[in-house]
């Protein structure tokens, strides 16, 4: 977000429950309405069709939940970021909660470019919808970690292609049992290709299906360290804070 004249802020929010069925675009619209309801001093773009300066992080697919979504916005005056959390959550649909806010450094790199690692919790069942054998799934996960390639059928722009998703997979392991299936945790790079939890599950074993997925963390990796996006580009001095 280019904070040339305004006061950029980064928000962290969760998206849990029924609301996970709305699209990324719907989430964006809900935030725009929430900014108005909470009467935030939004900065607008110039031009014939002025729009509030907001930029979202990576899209969350329909039906996926998340503990860690982010967006950047720009205000025209300094506001204590913490003071945004409650009013925005009240103004948002049930299930979307703002859980953190921080003043952002000027010219901080955009979320979509800087977030490099996503952590997912994925509950899987077998095709019949039953609980798979936990140990068997754990062995599958270990076997995938031991290989160097993982060719996966993917549909991209309506075309079936086969791509190797192994370079994107940093880690996968069994975490235990969920309500209906086995819980996996996976860490996926955002580059060079974005891999969906369902694609990963299908690549693991043709008999496994994704039941429910939740993004539990997003990381910005710099100089070998994992940085929480709220912290990574925080404004150094406290100038953005209201006194």
């Amino acid at each position: 977000m280019r904070g040339d004249t305004g006061f950029p802020v980064r928000l962290k929010f969760s998206e849990i429950g029924k609301v996970r069925f709305i699209s990324h675009r719907d989430v964006a619209r809900a935030f725009e309405r929430a900014f108005r309801i909470a009467e935030l001093p939004m900065a607008f773009t110039l031009g014939f069709s002025p729009r509030p300066k907001v930029s979202f992080g990576l899209a969350l697919s329909v039906a996926h939940e998340s503990d860690a979504e982010y967006l950047d916005l720009e205000l025209t005056e300094p506001v204590d970021p913490e003071s945004l959390v409650g009013p925005l959550t009240d103004a948002l649909p049930e299930g979307i909660s703002v859980i953190g806010a921080t003043a952002l450094a000027d010219r901080a790199p955009a979320l979509q470019e800087s977030v490099s690692l996503l952590v997912w919790d994925i509950e899987v069942t077998n095709r019949a919808g039953e609980m798979p054998d936990t140990l068997a799934v754990a062995r599958l996960a270990a076997a995938v970690m031991a290989t160097t390639t993982l060719p996966t059928a993917r549909t991209r722009k309506g075309r079936e292609t086969t791509e190797d998703i192994r370079p994107v997979l940093r880690m996968i392991e069994v975490r235990g049992q969920g309500e209906c299936g086995v819980l996996l945790r996976a860490e996926l790079s955002t580059q060079p290709v974005a891999v969906r939890p369902g694609e990963l599950v299908a690549a693991l074993d043709a008999d496994l299906v994704e039941l429910r997925s939740r993004r539990v963390a997003q990381w910005i990796e710099r100089g070998g360290a994992r940085l929480e996006p709220l912290v990574a580009d925080q404004r150094a001095e406290e100038t953005a804070r209201a006194s």
């Binding site: 029924k18 609301v19 069925f21 709305i22 699209s23 719907d26 329909v62 039906a63 649909p93 049930e94 299930g95």
Partner: peptide
Amino acid sequence: LWPRIEPLLAGVEKPARYIGMERG
């Protein structure tokens, strides 16, 4: 009926048609 409807929604077009939760 939500527990029976919810598992069907990932497989249908525009599932948010069926969740309600509108402000108001």
